[in-house]
Design a protein around this nucleic acid. Structure first.
Length: 459
RNA sequence: GUGGGUAUAGCUCAGUUGGUUAGAGCAUCGGAUUGUGGUUCCGAGGGUCGAGGGUUCGAAUCCCUUUACCCACCCCA
């Protein structure tokens, strides 16, 4: 028989059981943290009608989307969780209570070329708050608090949430009479970090911006200092918008409000900053935008970003649904943590808390003990294979199970079980029930004290 | 989509100017050792050298084509 060489597609992450256990633990942490802020869980299909996903049309999305036909149906794999949310809210808005807060962990797909830290299938962990017609700016200040708590709960300390406001940028461009080029300019300054000021200025001029305007832009985004100092420096652009909307002034007030409330929400000054170069590629953002990077690993890019949008579902409904949300690139985050050796090896990755090894043909007591353990919440594996003793112990070692229970003829005759602590090798005889409560106690203690990550290598 | 690199055992890789039967470490399996593991020792299995073509007496090695993967750009989480 000709065998086919098994392979996993490039850009698709597949983990061994131990790593998967760590991944699942991180996902649990995200879910519980999101829940703390009153977000409800949501799940939507991975496949949608292409016309729904591509309602906005054009651009990178169309190039990168996985699209196929099944019968007469034109179908696509979702490339983010925001568009499916828009669809969901448009369909169900009559039955939802607004502001609607939902979180969603799910796989998304992008048919771009894979590279370091960039995947074609990856998890996003999104939260969004959707308002009915209106949504207070306070929600925009709450979002970074959730990012902060999520990351610190995971055990991360070295990250920075960078905040900006699109209205500030758009208002500024309006002052320079460059509104028609706003998207291009934002795109260019967004790359400042990567390409440097010289090249950034050159690109602006190349894009048709006058030298004077380019210098204005460069000095605008070069504003530095603390958040308070930046806000103060921005005051000099106030009242310069000629149009009725006064968009810069509105944006500046929003940015000030957000920044002022962040410490009240529990985000320390050290972990956020105003960064006037943050623009975000997606053009539906209209207000506050966020980007979070690991300060020790800037090369990997943003691991969490998002922002405020005014009209989530405009392609599906007349209803005006403003919102704010962020997305954590979970697969990328996990990839960095794994690569940097930051994933704790203290975490329990064993699929079981105890392995019961029958030492005799008479398996009844072993099975009964397994049943008793399971009824009491102990993750129990029963080793049924007819292998040599050494093989059985090797198996116990490999899965990293903390306890082994032997049940042989002696145990059956005198009605006890032999419990062995695999960490220190200690071994003792106990009644089934005593063994059960002993193991349960130790396991519970370990679970609660477990850290997900260790940062020994964080300098 | 654009540019560069790599491809030899399950994994990480050696393999000389082209020359006998292509090697190592790790992993796997068996034995030393049938109620006490991680160590050690001994042994075994495992390869159409990515695929196709060419040059040559002879190709893992040189040439061409192709595919896959990796890195970077674009873009993004």
């Amino acid at each position: 028989m000709e065998r086919i060489k098994p392979r996993t597609l490039s850009g698709f992450m597949e983990l061994l059981p131990e790593k998967q256990a760590q991944m699942e633990r991180i996902m649990e942490t995200l879910r519980s943290t999101y829940s703390l802020y009153g977000f409800a869980p949501l799940d939507t299909p991975i496949i949608e009608a292409s016309e729904v996903l591509l309602a906005k049309g054009g651009g990178e999305t169309e190039k990168q989307i996985y699209r196929f036909e099944k019968g007469d149906s034109d179908l696509s794999l979702r490339f983010d969780l925001t568009v499916p949310l828009a669809k969901y809210v448009a369909i169900n808005c009559g039955q939802l209570s607004f502001p609607f807060r939902r979180y969603q962990l799910g796989k998304v797909f992008r048919g771009e070329r894979a590279q370091r830290g960039r995947f074609r299938e990856f998890y996003q962990a999104d939260i969004d708050i959707i308002g009915d017609g209106e949504l207070d700016v306070m929600n925009e200040a709450e979002i970074p608090a959730i990012i902060y708590r999520t990351f610190t709960t995971l055990g991360l300390t070295k990250f920075k949430i960078r905040v900006n406001n699109r209205k500030v940028l758009n208002g500024f461009f309006e002052i320079l009479e460059l509104s028609d080029r706003a998207a291009d300019i934002m795109h260019t300054i967004d790359k400042l970090d990567k390409i440097g000021t010289e090249k950034c200025r050159a690109l602006l001029i190349e894009g048709g911006v006058s030298e004077n305007a380019a210098d204005e832009i460069m000095s605008f985004i070069a504003i530095n200092g603390t958040s308070a100092e930046k806000l103060k420096a921005l005051e000099k652009y106030r009242n310069k918008n000629t149009t009725y909307s006064k968009i810069f002034d509105v944006g500046l007030k929003e940015l000030g409000d957000v920044v002022r409330h962040l410490p009240e929400f529990g985000v320390p000054e050290s972990h956020f900053e105003i960064d006037l170069t943050i623009a975000r590629g997606l053009d539906y953002y209209t207000g506050t935008v966020y980007e979070t990077t690991l300060t020790e690993h800037p090369e990997i890019g943003s691991v969490c970003s998002g922002g405020r949008y005014d009209n989530l579902a405009e392609y599906y409904t007349d209803k005006k649904l403003p919102g704010v949300g962020i997305s954590i690139g979970l697969t990328r985050l996990f990839f960095v943590l794994e690569e940097q050796g930051m994933l704790s090896n203290e975490i329990i990755t064993s699929p079981a808390d105890v392995l019961i090894i029958p030492m005799t043909e008479n398996k009844a007591k072993a099975i009964e003990t397994a049943t008793l353990f399971r009824e009491n919440g102990i993750r129990t594996m029963l080793y049924s294979e007819q292998k040599k003793f050494k093989s059985k112990m090797n198996f116990a070692d490999k899965i990293g199970v903390p306890f082994v229970v032997f049940i042989g003829d002696d145990e059956i005759a005198d009605n006890f079980v032999t419990v062995k602590n695999m960490k220190n090798g200690h071994q003792f005889k106990k009644s089934e029930k005593m063994a059960m409560s002993y193991i349960k106690g130790v396991v519970t203690l370990r679970n609660n004290s477990d850290l997900i990550l260790n940062f020994v290598k964080e300098k």
